[in-house]
């Protein structure tokens, strides 16, 4: 594994059992993600892109093959070790933001830091910095219902970067946004990769969004075609 490779996937297969039948979703897949790159994963529905993203994010386990992130084979980690790994190494951006409506923007961003040993003041300080990075320093005390979709996704991005993860996975991050807001989010992701050396893997259906990535991987019937 070269020094600049952040994620290395080898011989990855995923088979689901449904009603006694085996359903092969990913078959013998190899993939490398370089450090500090913004890469996109495209493919038709059912091609396995969300499954691949979930396995790289440590939310699901491969049937066979390995997934190494920063040299660590995460497929060998236990459930609780995986959860701890996710909290330290990974930032997650969802299509529907998944912010907690009872928390302000600042509190939402602070949420992952509850899992650390940081004190309240330090957690707040880091959450403020993250919100400043995404340009929402004026909206810290706003609740999600008081924000636009684009702003909510920015809060979600701030939450994803607040623990300074090495890798960010984004599942259709612009899927619920208008074009202008989507462009703003993509610009922000480009900036995170370029200026903050984050490795970003984005699943998208949108070719315009994929064009903004430094590299596009196409998945079809569980195999990478490019």
């Amino acid at each position: 594994m070269s020094e600049s490779t952040m994620v290395r996937v080898r011989g990855l297969s995923k088979i689901y059992e449904r009603g006694g039948e085996q359903l092969k979703v990913l078959s013998g897949l190899d993939l490398d993600l370089a450090e500090g790159t913004f890469e996109a994963l495209m493919g038709p529905s059912g091609s396995g892109k969300s499954t691949l993203l979930n396995i790289i994010a440590g939310l699901d386990r491969p049937s066979s093959g390995t997934v190494e992130v920063k040299g660590e084979d995460i497929s060998r980690l236990s459930e609780s070790a995986l959860a701890t790994w996710r909290s330290r190494t990974l930032g997650f951006i969802f299509q529907s933001y998944n912010l907690m409506p009872v928390l302000t923007a600042l509190e939402n961003v602070e949420l992952p830091l509850l899992l650390t040993k940081l004190g309240g003041a330090e957690r707040k300080k880091r959450a403020e910095i993250a919100l400043r990075i995404v340009g929402l320093e004026q909206r810290m005390d706003h609740y999600p219902r008081q924000l636009s979709g684009g702003q909510e996704q920015r809060v979600a991005i701030a939450r994803a970067i607040v623990n300074d993860p090495a890798i960010i996975v984004a599942d259709e991050p612009t899927g619920d946004l208008d074009r202008q807001s989507a462009d703003d989010i993509l610009t922000l992701l480009e900036k995170l990769a370029k200026d903050m050396n984050k490795t970003i893997l984005m699943v998208t259906h949108d070719p315009v969004a994929a064009d903004r990535a430094t590299k596009v991987h196409r998945l079809d019937k569980g195999a990478l075609s490019s």
Binding site: L59, A83, R86, F92, P112
Partner: peptide, 16 residues
């Protein structure tokens, strides 16, 4: 349920 899924995704444990 979806919110709990999101919390688990960002590192919260079942006991949390």
């Amino acid at each position: 349920t979806q919110e709990y899924g999101a919390l688990r995704a960002i590192g919260f444990l079942p006991r949390h």
